[in-house]
Amino acid sequence: MGILVKERDIVTPGETLAEGLDYLPGQGTYRKEERIISKLVGIVNIDKKIIKVTPLSGKYLPKKGDLVIAKVIDITLNGWRLDINSPYSAMMLAKEATTRLVRKGEDLSRILDIGNYVLAKVKNVTSQNLVDLTMNEPELKKLSEGLIIRISPVKVPRVIGTRGSMVSMIKKETGCKIIVGQNGMVWIHGDEKGEVLAANAIRRIEKEAHINGLTEKIKEMLEKAKSKE
């Protein structure tokens, strides 16, 4: 009876996490009769009475309101099709990309061409996972300079850090502008050396995402790299 795992244990699908009715099944788990069982390979997270399993791998599934970085892959009659690093591609209507009036029959490639990257927000997701994007908010824009890297979407929270601690530290140390999309695409813009340094730091965070005190280690690594110059 009771709980069978500890906080931060790694569990696999089908593993019993708790027995009895004292605990509630959270994300990544399910209840079968008196048992709570994991559905994922992940890390156990116990929040009072709720047992959650945080996934360690997997694809990005878009949610309404997510900030994403997307790549234009096609132009349609009234907008664009974009790659959002997910099993599903997204659509964006012409009027969502610009505040000015888009005339009928206008060449949309003059606003966004195939291969361009944009910073956008998920406007809507249907039950069939059709995704609508928008750029009609002040900070959303076309990303014409800089570097784009793709990381595993489940590592995004770690790259951002608690209240943005990790990403703002990398920004400060490298002097780069960095935007982390919820879909695991990261935009880095600064001088050449800074961009490479920031990209390496982010790759390392992706690899060692669950190590304690990672922010300090990354800071050390960046400071060492800078002092070599």
Binding site: T12, P13, G14, Y30, I37, K39, L40, V41, L56, S57
Partner: peptide, 11 residues
């Protein structure tokens, strides 16, 4: 399949 992060009720 488990390594790919898919939801599974068991192995």
């Amino acid at each position: 399949l488990a390594d790919a992060g898919l939801e599974m009720k068991d192995l």
